[in-house]
Simulated scan of single mutants.
Amino acid sequence: MKNIFSLFIILFFSWGHAQKLDNIQSGEVLNYRIHYGFLNAGTATLTTLKTTYQGKPHFYVKGYGRTSGAVRAFFKVEDNYESFINYNTGLPSFYVRNVQEGSYTQHLETAFNHDNNTLILSDKEKNTSKVVKSVKDVQDMLSAFYYLRSLDSTDLKVGNVKKLKVWIDDELFPFQLKVVGTENVNTKFGTINCLKIVPQVISGRVFKDKEGVTLWVSNDKNLIPIAVKAELAVGSLKASLESYKNVKYPLRF
């Protein structure tokens, strides 16, 4: 169960070149229900607000995940993520990961400099800071989620494989995703047509195998993750859209 909500966010990465986030609406809220095997494991929420950061238009995004029910009784998780994402480029400017997972805690802040491909990583618990070499168009875990949703139909053709590097905790991870087809997915709101995406992830550390994750994204301009399934090294993780509001385009169930 460790890092289960971190994994939930990681599953929603993206690809392509930097681009404007003009299909995301300020005030959007997405709520997800997470299951671990047969257990109701917890919830995750993503909220978006248009703001300014360092004098430039940004989205301020908050991600919050927590365990619930029987799972919380033996493993308490309170995961908080924040990201300031440049509205015109889709790239993160500032990222916060502040989590408590059982006895494990971590509070990191990352300031990105995309002009010289570096970042400043600050550990708030240890009161340390260092400059780290980065790569072009690096994403954090939250910005990647919204970056995916800024793509158009030409980027999302069946068979397309794209690569991305995501800053997770305190290091870079390479990912690639493949659009394998379309599929109708049953939800509490009705049936919705989705793009079926298979991210290729690092096996052995957390996931059961290299392609143990499947993501279903609404096949419309919103590109909202509707459901996700991950076969973990121990058990399986499932998540589904529980509620939503203030999405820019109507979801067609």
Results as ranks from 00 to 15, higher is better:
2 K>H: 11
130 K>N: 06
78 E>I: 14
93 S>N: 14
41 A>T: 05
195 L>E: 01
187 T>R: 05
215 L>E: 10
29 V>G: 01
116 N>T: 12
143 S>F: 13
2 K>P: 00
209 D>P: 01
191 T>V: 15
35 H>N: 14
38 F>I: 14
163 K>N: 11
183 E>C: 05
253 F>D: 03
192 I>A: 04
99 V>Q: 02
213 V>F: 01
2 K>R: 13
54 Q>L: 11
10 I>F: 01
104 Y>S: 10
94 F>M: 10
156 L>R: 15
66 R>V: 14
79 D>Y: 06
39 L>E: 06
90 G>W: 05
234 V>H: 03
14 S>I: 08
98 N>P: 03
140 D>L: 07
7 L>H: 09
245 K>R: 15
86 N>T: 03
244 Y>C: 08
131 V>M: 12
157 K>G: 14
47 T>M: 05
45 T>I: 13
114 H>E: 00
75 F>G: 00
90 G>C: 09
244 Y>A: 06
183 E>D: 13
133 K>E: 13
84 F>Y: 15
252 R>P: 00
72 R>Q: 09
234 V>I: 15
91 L>M: 11
230 A>C: 07
92 P>R: 02
34 I>N: 01
62 K>I: 06
43 T>S: 11
180 V>E: 09
21 L>K: 03
107 H>Q: 07
61 V>I: 15
114 H>C: 03
142 L>N: 05
30 L>F: 02
80 N>T: 14
31 N>E: 14
80 N>S: 07
114 H>Q: 03
150 S>W: 09
126 K>S: 06
89 T>Y: 07
30 L>M: 05
108 L>A: 08
21 L>Y: 11
133 K>C: 00
196 K>D: 02
148 L>N: 11
132 V>T: 05
63 G>Y: 04
82 E>H: 09
177 L>E: 10
26 S>A: 10
182 T>Q: 09
187 T>A: 05
5 F>S: 04
66 R>W: 04
225 P>H: 06
177 L>H: 08
53 Y>V: 04
198 V>E: 13
252 R>W: 03
107 H>K: 11
3 N>T: 11
215 L>A: 04
136 K>S: 13
97 R>A: 12
233 A>H: 05
227 A>Y: 09
153 S>V: 15
2 K>D: 12
27 G>Y: 04
95 Y>K: 00
62 K>T: 11
64 Y>G: 00
29 V>T: 13
164 L>I: 15
222 N>M: 12
